[in-house]
Amino acid sequence: MSIRPFYFIKESFKSFSKNWIISMAAITTVTLSLLVLGFFMLVAFTVNNWMNMTERKVEIVVFLNDGVPAESVQSLQSEIMSWNDDVRKVTYVSKDQALERLKKEFKGSDMLSMIEGNPLPASFEISLKDPAKADEIVKRLKGRSEIESIRHDKQTVERLINFTKMARWVGVIFAGLLAFAALVLIANAIRLAIYARRREIAIMRLVGASNWFIRWPFLLEGIIQGLVGAVIAIAILSVIRAAIEDNVKRLLAFLPTGLPSQSYWQLTFALVIAGIMIGAAGSALALRRFLRV
C-alpha cells in the first residue's frame, strides 16, 4: 500500500471540524492534566535544584576544640574524607580564616571592635552527597575529644526533602487522574469520529482496505489532540514559570532560584511525549472497542 500522509491528515482534520466540541473538551483535559503535572514537576525540580546548590555549600559544621594538635586535625579530616560514599567535600576552616570571614560579613559595623583576640573555633565544613545521611554522619562524629560541637541544620533539610517528595507525588497523582479523564474523553471523541464514518469504514473493509489504512486517521486524530493539549500546557507553563521566577528573584535575591534550562527542556519534551501517549492510548482504546477490523 502506498503511504499517503496527506490523506490521513486531511481525514483527521475533517473529523475534528465535525466533532470540535467533544475534541475541544478532550484537548482541554489533556492541557489541564499536563499543566498540573508540569507545574508540580517544575516546583519539585526548582526546590531540588535549590537544595542541591545549598547542599553543595555546607550541611554539617564540626567545631573543633582549641588546642587540638595539627596531626589529630589532619587525621580526623582524612577519616571523614574516607567516608566518600556519603561525603562530597570536607573543608577545614582555621581560627584565622573564621575570623577573616566574620570580618568580611560585618564590614563597617562596630561589632568587631568588641572582639578581643580570636574567640572563634576552627571547624570542618562537610557537604554530603545525600542530605538524608546527615544523621548518620553526625552520630559517627559525636563524642570525639577533638570536637567541641556539631551543627547540623536537620529540620530545614528534612522539610525540603519532604516537600519535594510531596510535590512530586501530588503532581503525579492529580496529573494521573486528569490524564485518565483526558484519555476517556479522547476515546469518546474518536468513537464519535468512527461512528460518523461507519459507512465508509464498512465499505473500506468490504473492498479490502488494509487494517492500518482504516485505523490511521483515527489514531492520528487522537495523537493530534494529545499533542495540541501538550503544546497549550507548555505555553501556559512557560508563562507561569516566568512570572514566578521574577517574583521569587525580587523577594529572595540571595537564593539561587530557577531551573537549569536543560531540565526545563527535558520537562517540555516529557510533556510532549506524555500528550502524544495520552492521545494514542485514547484512540487505541476507542479502536479496540469500536473498530473491529
Binding site: M1, R4, E200, M204, V207, G208, A209, F213
Partner: peptide, 10 residues
C-alpha cells in the same frame, strides 16, 4: 473510485 483509492491504487 473510493474502492480503488482505499486499497492504494494510483
Amino acid at each position: 473510485a473510493f474502492a480503488l483509492d482505499v486499497i492504494g491504487k494510483p
